[in-house]
């Protein structure tokens, strides 16, 4: 057990280190911008005084290292800075209105998490079941149809799936709304209904991936000599699966799930845009278009953190489920 704990702590430390390096990469990337932010924000309207004022506000007169650490410090404590859109508003009109980046992101982050969880709730059980079935009945008609269907679904762009679903489930048969305009104060049921189409779109893509990976994992497992041994001991097929295959399949399946949840993170961006879903992905794309750097930076770090976290989780869970590590010699 000591051993496992050590490995896990190592992985955690490595994950944290990766996140730190990623934050540096993002920070440097953003600082590669020509000129400085102040001119960028004000554009044509820049007067020397307003530029100087923004520079002071943003701390641009300090060194890059100092700025990095104050930015990082802010990220850790939840202060994600001030968005350009808001700064522009303040300096040009002298007002103090608008939201900070944190205020802007928080509700949208919650929405995205809601979308991701609904997707996971549908996709994970579906994909794992179908994947196991495809592995058990491999090379049958079912397996071949599933292979072609999942391959097609993986290959299609998310917006293609999204529009097909809109066409059939919103326009031709008005079952779900095609616009997911979620706002505060909606009941859970209403929210769920509005989230259904984006969730289904993501489900189609993620399920295909997850199912193929589960199938591959189970097939390689079923080919192992100890499964043959169990069969040759006259154990019932059900028990072979539950007792012999499953404990060993857990690690690869958990891995598959975590990896696909990480994949979901990239997937939400396009889907949120298609359905005008007020999530973090939509905010990210909007900010990219108006070059609102602080928001882009913050969103990017959040996406990366979630991605690293999920991959880390996959790693740790598969270590935990490895009997060789759990019971060292």
């Amino acid at each position: 057990m000591q051993n496992v704990l050590k490995i896990i702590l190592q992985r955690l430390a490595l994950g944290l280190l990766t996140l730190l390096v990623v934050s540096i990469v993002i920070f440097i990337a953003v600082n590669l911008l020509p000129g400085d932010f102040a001119e960028l924000i004000l554009g044509q309207a820049a007067t020397p005084e307003s530029v100087a004022s923004i520079r002071r506000d943003l701390g641009l007169d300090q060194s890059m290292v100092t700025r990095y650490f104050s930015w990082l410090g802010g990220m850790v404590t939840g202060d994600l800075g001030t968005s350009f859109a808001q700064l522009n508003f303040q300096t040009n009109l002298g007002g103090t209105g608008g939201k900070t980046v944190a205020e802007q992101i928080a509700p949208r982050f919650a929405n995205t998490m809601f979308l991701a969880s609904v997707t996971a709730m549908i996709a994970v059980p579906l994909a794992v079941t179908l994947g196991i079935l495809a592995a058990l009945y491999r090379n049958t008609v079912f397996d071949r149809v599933a292979n072609i269907a999942t391959l097609s679904s993986i290959s299609s762009p998310e917006f293609f799936m999204a529009y097909i679903l809109i066409l059939f489930l919103a326009v031709l048969n008005p079952i779900f709304p095609s616009l997911s305009n979620i706002y505060e104060g909606m009941t859970f049921g209403e929210k769920l209904e509005k989230t259904m189409l984006p969730a289904l779109t993501l489900t189609l893509v993620v399920t295909a991936h997850m199912m193929r990976m589960t199938r591959a994992a189970i097939i390689s497992l079923l080919a192992s000599p100890y499964i043959e041994m169990a069969r040759l001991k006259g154990i019932s097929p059900m028990r072979v699966i539950v007792k012999h295959a499953l404990p060993n399949a857990l690690a690869p399946i958990i891995n598959v799930i975590a990896l696909n949840l990480a994949y979901l993170i990239t997937g939400v961006v396009v889907v949120e845009v298609v359905f005008v879903y007020p999530g973090i992905g939509q905010l990210f794309v909007d900010s990219v278009k108006i070059r609102d750097i602080p928001v882009v930076q913050a969103c990017c770090l959040i996406f990366a953190a979630a991605y690293i976290l999920l991959n880390l989780m996959a790693d740790i869970l598969s270590i935990l489920s490895n009997p060789r590590l759990r019971h060292p010699k």
Binding site: L19, F303, Y307
Partner: peptide
């Protein structure tokens, strides 16, 4: 490569495209 792969590719591409768009016009 480990570090670069820790950032989801579409997100990273979008971030860099934002920066590139400024450079492109410059």
């Amino acid at each position: 490569v480990d570090v670069l792969m820790a950032i989801p590719s579409l997100i990273f591409a979008l971030l860099l495209m934002t920066i590139a768009s400024v450079w492109a016009s410059e």
